[in-house]
């Protein structure tokens, strides 16, 4: 059992390494001949150079902070309005179609609108990233709340819980798994849209550094930034899943006391 696990972990590392070696070989031997396609070694060298410069960390933290701030705002708004819409059938009937229209607008087409209103500012970045993250959180909260089983609602009434108690003890916990899914999707979108606004023109962050590297014809640096965005996405996602599990199990152990 333990052996197969180590084995599969080994295989998991195997594939990327082989890919990297193939990549390096194909460039050294000239099989792939693109003008601006850097080799892994060049990318690694560029990374070491960047890692010693302060700007790199400034850009990195800028993007991460914007992503998180936007995500937190979206979480508060999304869960709040999600509850409002999900808990009341008349409200749901009265606004949900509008929500569906707004959330299916291609978010990228909203960026120019944002640029016109806010210019290339920090506010633009946060507003756009928040807008993108808001919809999955809101929609998942709405459906989580609305999917609360009628049995649970009946029990709440028979036990004669107050409305607040019903929301807090029955509806929110039963909607929690779906809300968490929305939060995870929202986090990813928040990061992507932060990077998009940086690429398009906000003069800060990973996206900005990336587009600078492109314009300065530094493909190796550009690849570093691409990999960094990948790593940020991967880590944020992993961190979220980790803490979501902690929340769920903390809830369980609190129950036990």
């Amino acid at each position: 059992m333990a052996q197969t696990k180590t084995k599969s972990r080994f295989i998991g590392w195997f594939a990327p390494i082989i890919l990297l070696i193939l990549w390096q070989l194909s460039i050294v031997t000239g099989i792939i001949r693109f003008r601006y396609f850097p080799s892994p070694v060049a990318v690694a060298q560029a990374f070491l150079r960047l890692a010693n410069s302060g700007r790199f960390y400034g850009n990195l933290s800028h993007t991460v902070i914007v992503t998180l701030v936007a995500w937190i705002i979206a979480t508060i708004l999304g869960v709040l309005f999600g509850l409002l819409i999900g808990l009341s059938l008349p409200v749901w009937k009265g606004v949900m179609a509008s929500v569906d229209v707004l959330r299916s607008l291609p978010i990228i087409a909203l960026v120019p609108v944002g640029v016109i209103i806010f210019g290339f500012t920090l506010r633009l970045e946060i507003v756009i990233a928040t807008y993108a993250a808001l919809w999955p959180i809101l929609v998942n909260t709405v459906s989580g709340v609305r999917q609360t089983r009628s049995e649970l609602l009946d029990i709440g009434r028979i036990i004669r819980m107050s409305r607040v108690e019903r929301v807090w003890k029955l509806i929110l916990p039963s909607a929690l798994p779906l809300i968490l899914v929305g939060l995870r999707l929202g986090l990813g979108l928040s990061l992507v849209l932060a990077i998009v606004t940086e690429i398009v023109g906000t003069p800060n962050g990973i996206g900005y550094a990336l587009i600078n590297a492109e314009q300065a014809l530094h493909p190796a640096q550009m690849f570093v930034y691409i990999l960094v965005t990948g790593v940020i996405g991967y880590l944020l996602n992993g961190l979220f899943i980790f803490s979501a599990r902690r929340i769920l199990s903390a809830e369980k152990s609190a129950e036990k006391n």
């Binding site: 089983r149 049995e151 649970l152 009946d154 029990i155 028979i158 003890k169 029955l170 916990p173 039963s174 929690l176 769920l248 809830e251 369980k252 129950e255 036990k256």
Partner: peptide, 17 residues
Amino acid sequence: VALVFQDYVNSLLRWRT
């Protein structure tokens, strides 16, 4: 007055012991 439902899976709070 207390009520016992047929559908026990959905009547119990799965997040509670």
